[in-house]
Computed example of a mutant assay.
Amino acid sequence: MTETGADYIKQNSMPEDEINQNSDSTLGERPAVPRWGPQHAGAKELASQYTAGKRLQETICVIGTSILMVVNGILLLKHFQLEDWKVVLIAAILGILTADFLSGLVHWGADTWGSVELPVIGKGFIRPFREHHIDPTSITRHDFIETNGDNFAVILLPLAYMAYKFFTYPEEVIRQNYNWEMYMFLLTIFVSLTNQFHKWSHTYFGLPRWITFLQDCHIILPRKHHRIHHVAPHETYFCITTGWLNYPLEAMRFWPALENIIETLTGFKPRDDDLKWAKKS
């Protein structure tokens, strides 16, 4: 990225390293109406829609999924053989690439389409995406359950099915499917970590050195890299596990192509609901 590009991103995204300020350091004063942050009218309304029922669902999913992770991890180790180390390495690489792509697909879908007013999924699933664009650092104020509850919910059933197979399938079938099960297990692990990586990409203070080292090496989602997504209208760099696939997908114009197809077929405008919340004052 050119220096001009980096300056543009810094001046047109929330200055997160200044803790929810609403003016860039180069401008010297705040606008009358916050452009973003917890004082934004839309952010306040969206934050108030986080319910006790949603919290309970997230808590159950985090606990249940965590137990299944431990159970499946132990069972995979039980059936591990020394020659399987190559399988683990390949499964890890494919798993993290798949998780990165899926994070982009879900992120793009929830950012671009749908409405908070939709039954069930609106307030339960789309609401956090709308809040995040007008108050990006809200995620840094969320605890582990609120940050990761939805991702743990997504992988609950696949992990339950995996455990069922381990307990009911004969040994020879388990060995025959071991490569696939290892890939699926590592994929679920990376999916479960995705929103934590995302949270760290918005955390400019107090991160342990080992996390910032992983970010600097672009092993997990870096802060400067993800900031590109937070320049309105939030139409690029959707992958948030590692961000590795953002470069090739951007070069292919993958997301605009999908948006053009959907808009042509349905007539719906991308990011229409997102813009509505951003304009609240």
Rank of each mutant, 00 (worst) to 15 (best):
A91G: 11
A91L: 07
A92L: 13
A92M: 12
A92Y: 07
A92K: 03
I93M: 05
L94H: 07
L94I: 12
G95D: 00
G95K: 00
G95V: 02
I96W: 00
I96C: 01
I96F: 01
I96H: 02
T98F: 14
T98W: 03
T98R: 04
A99G: 07
A99T: 08
A99D: 02
A99V: 04
A99I: 05
A99L: 06
A99M: 02
D100Q: 06
F101I: 13
F101M: 12
F101T: 09
L102A: 05
L102M: 13
L102C: 13
S103T: 11
S103D: 08
L105S: 06
L105H: 11
L105E: 03
V106T: 11
V106G: 04
H107C: 07
W108H: 15
A110K: 12
A110G: 05
A110T: 14
T112W: 02
W113K: 11
W113T: 10
G114W: 11
G114A: 07
S115D: 15
S115P: 08
S115T: 14
S115K: 14
S115E: 12
V116P: 01
V116S: 03
V116D: 01
E117L: 02
E117A: 13
E117N: 15
L118V: 07
L118S: 04
L118R: 05
L118A: 12
P119V: 13
V120C: 11
V120G: 04
G122A: 10
G122E: 13
K123N: 15
K123G: 03
G124F: 02
G124C: 09
G124L: 13
F125W: 15
I126N: 08
I126V: 15
R127P: 07
R127T: 13
P128K: 03
R130Q: 10
R130A: 00
R130Y: 04
E131K: 11
E131C: 02
E131Y: 00
E131M: 04
E131V: 01
H132Q: 14
H132A: 10
H133V: 08
H133N: 12
H133I: 06
I134T: 05
I134N: 01
I134R: 00
I134W: 00
D135Y: 01
D135N: 15
D135Q: 07
D135R: 04
P136G: 08
S138V: 12
S138M: 15
S138N: 12
I139G: 05
T140I: 14
R141F: 06
R141Y: 10
R141S: 08
H142G: 09
H142C: 08
H142R: 14
D143P: 04
D143Q: 06
D143W: 13
D143Y: 05
F144G: 06
F144L: 13
F144S: 03
I145N: 03
I145K: 06
I145W: 10
E146T: 03
T147I: 08
N148E: 06
N148I: 04
G149V: 11
D150M: 08
D150R: 14
D150W: 07
N151W: 08
F152C: 01
A153I: 07
A153V: 05
